[in-house]
């Protein structure tokens, strides 16, 4: 029987790995479709029905491109950059609870790879390691534009990580736990954290945009100002990995927002239906993904609405507005929990 958990976790890891990659691939398609629709266009519709094979065509194109490593580049670090970025992006998904446990012949299959009691800390830590991918990639290219892009990206990510971490503390104070499964369980029914932590949610959302290098915080790779940012010298699938990892990041960020603030797999009234355990479990997974997809859409929606920040505005927003606000949020939440509740 002691093999069962190992098989169970291996299967779960494989499924989550494939789902993350699949969703990231189709996010690129969705991004182009959403962008087109928001601009009164139609978007890709030639490859397959409704252009659904577009991500495959893009992937094949990426693989067929010539692989170039600059002669002055540090080859090992140059290769390591996209690897770290992709790996950390995928690693974050390990602690996210995807749904209620499944019941397979008496065995309780927990739909979460690792229910560790420092889940939130693990996510914040892994996300910070992702900066090394960008920094190494930019530095190892031995190109001033790459280096500038990398410096911009990493200083931005480090600045916003502070406010992001502090904005989560409010949630942690309410749920009394660092484990993501406990946080989600604490939001049963309609006790979603967004109701108690609107300010924390707003700060977290803004920081998530900045952490993912998404518009309006896409200064790391702003095509109109830098040549291409930290991945200027990258080509072929190594470039593909960087771009792809950003979409994985976007998916994980959306899942995290759902877990922390929008009740994860919970939905008001679903517990009163008295469904069999497995049906309830599958419905909870569907609910979770529906919420996640909404936030992925929201990421794209924001991208085509708000223009890019100037660099000084970005730093001012991060350090002078979001950081004090998040500290205020922590103090206010703590005071409310101590004196009112």
């Amino acid at each position: 029987m002691e093999w069962l958990p190992i098989i169970d976790k291996s299967v779960l890891i494989l499924i989550i790995f494939l789902i993350s990659l699949g969703i990231a691939a189709y996010s690129t398609y969705a991004e182009r479709k959403v962008a087109a629709f928001l601009q009164d266009r139609i978007g890709p519709n030639r490859a397959g029905p409704f252009g659904l094979l577009q991500p495959i065509a893009d992937g094949v194109k990426m693989f067929m491109k010539e692989e170039i490593i600059p002669s002055a580049a540090d080859k090992f670090l140059f290769m390591l950059g996209p690897c770290i970025f992709m790996m950390t992006a995928l690693m974050t998904s390990a602690v996210i609870p995807w749904g209620k446990p499944l019941d397979i012949g008496g065995y309780q299959m927990n739909l979460q790879v690792a229910d560790i009691n420092i889940g939130v800390l693990y996510i914040v830590a892994t996300a910070s390691v992702g900066v090394y991918g960008i920094m190494l990639g930019g530095w190892a290219s031995n190109n001033k534009f790459s280096l500038l892009g990398a410096v911009r990206a990493s200083s931005q990510m480090i600045s916003y990580e502070l406010a992001m971490g502090l904005s989560i503390i409010g949630v942690l104070l309410i749920s009394n736990s660092l484990s993501l499964s406990d946080i989600v369980k604490g939001q049963e029914g309609f006790h979603w954290n967004i109701i108690y932590q609107p300010l924390g949610f707003l700060i977290f959302l803004i920081c998530a945009f900045a952490e993912c290098n998404r518009a309006p915080f896409d200064l790391a790779e702003c095509e109109t100002e830098l040549v291409g940012g930290y991945h200027t010298e990258y080509s072929s699938m190594k470039l593909g990995m960087f771009l792809f990892a950003e979409y994985v990041n976007m998916f994980i960020s959306s899942a995290l927002i759902v877990c922390l603030f929008f009740g994860g797999y919970n939905f008001p009234g679903i517990d009163n239906l008295d469904l069999p355990q497995n049906v309830a479990s599958i419905i909870s997974v569907v609910i979770f993904f529906a919420k996640t997809f909404f936030f992925i859409f929201f990421f794209m929606w924001i991208r085509w609405t708000i223009p890019r920040f100037r660099y000084d505005q970005l730093m001012k927003l991060g350090w002078q507005i979001l950081l004090p606000l998040s500290i205020f949020n922590v103090v206010a939440t703590a005071a409310w929990l101590t004196f009112v509740k």
Binding site: V34, F37, L38, Q39, D40, R41, I42, W301, I302, W304, T305, I306
Partner: peptide, 17 residues
């Protein structure tokens, strides 16, 4: 601004195939 962009999401597309 979000309202303006989402209203375009449902508008008739200008593309001629």
């Amino acid at each position: 601004g979000l309202g303006i962009t989402i209203s375009h999401f449902f508008k008739k597309k200008a593309t001629v195939q």
